[in-house]
């Protein structure tokens, strides 16, 4: 695109983000402050993920962008079009062919490969934020590894509902040290963070933090002995591909409240249907 550098960001900004990324990988789960820049998209719409993608993306990469697991949601379409425009990279919807996958709210169902990088868009990177609003305080809590309040919060849910009532953005502990917000993915996806083959990068543009989970890293969802972590299950299967393993979206089909369940990961669903046909 005329007048802008490859992948939009200038080289000095990319270098700053790249240095921060190396630190993020070296300290898994720790939120590295970085000089987040304005992007030509609004904050909260993926500017953190986009800055990370822009800093790692090369001309030979193949990019996939998903939102809610789908390639065709408007924000995914818009971000994909942005990188086609400013970086001229090839894009794909096939999870298996992409080197870089930028995502909002989901991890693809298909296992990722060692040479893939998954970039998460993160709205609120601080897992302790809703317990303690002050950044000065939460920073200290991480420094002192003082995570008792988080356990208390989760246990209050159990006392009240009989369950932990956090269903997405479910906190994890990375390599036994940092409590981390995995972004608002459903807790269904949390097990995919553990010992993944792929590098996972997290970018929060408005909050100016980035963090990482290297491949093959221990990632545990917080829980209790008498209330072990568990993921969502559906009685239904996908109405399109029949999957019983994937995260299902509920689709209202008529005014009478008729509904059906379909895979949230559109590429996974399409691939299965292709194999079944």
């Amino acid at each position: 695109m005329n007048g802008y550098n490859f992948a939009y960001l200038d080289e000095q900004t990319k270098r700053m983000i790249r240095r921060a990324l190396l630190k993020a990988v070296a300290i898994p789960g720790y939120q590295v402050p970085f000089g987040g820049r304005e992007m030509p998209m609004p904050y909260g719409w993926g500017t953190g993920g986009m800055q990370l993608t822009a800093s790692i993306l090369g001309a030979g990469d193949v990019l996939k962008v998903i939102d809610q697991g789908a390639d065709d949601t408007t924000n995914a379409v818009s971000i994909r079009a942005f990188f086609e425009r400013v970086a001229g990279v090839e894009t794909t919807t096939a999870t298996g062919t992409a080197n870089v996958i930028q995502t909002r709210h989901r991890i693809p169902e298909a296992p990722l490969a060692p040479d893939q990088i998954l970039v998460f868009q993160v709205p609120i990177p601080e897992p302790l934020r809703f317990i303690e609003p002050s950044e000065q305080e939460t920073r200290l809590m991480h420094a002192l590894e003082e995570y008792g309040v988080m356990q208390v919060k989760l246990y209050e849910d159990i006392a009240r509902y009989g369950h932990i009532a956090t269903t997405y953005a479910y906190p994890v502990k990375v390599d036994g040290r940092y409590v981390m917000d995995p972004s608002p993915i459903p807790k269904f996806d949390n097990p995919k963070l553990h010992q993944s083959d792929a590098l996972m990068l997290f970018g929060a543009g408005r909050e100016k933090r980035l963090y990482a989970i290297p491949p093959y890293t221990r990632v545990e969802s917080l829980d209790f002995e008498d209330h072990p972590f568990e993921i969502q299950r559906w009685d239904e299967s996908c109405a399109l591909c029949g999957s019983r393993e994937s995260f299902l979206d509920e689709v209202i089909t008529d005014d009478a409240g008729g509904r059906m369940f379909v895979c949230s990961d559109t590429d996974y669903c399409l691939t299965r249907r292709g194999e079944l046909a």
Binding site: P42, T47, H105, R106, K187, F247, S264
Partner: peptide
């Protein structure tokens, strides 16, 4: 305004979890 307006983006996966 960015973060407020992002509420217009789909959130149906999290909503489904709830």
């Amino acid at each position: 305004s960015g973060f407020v307006s992002h509420l217009k983006l789909p959130h149906y996966v999290d909503f489904q979890s709830e």
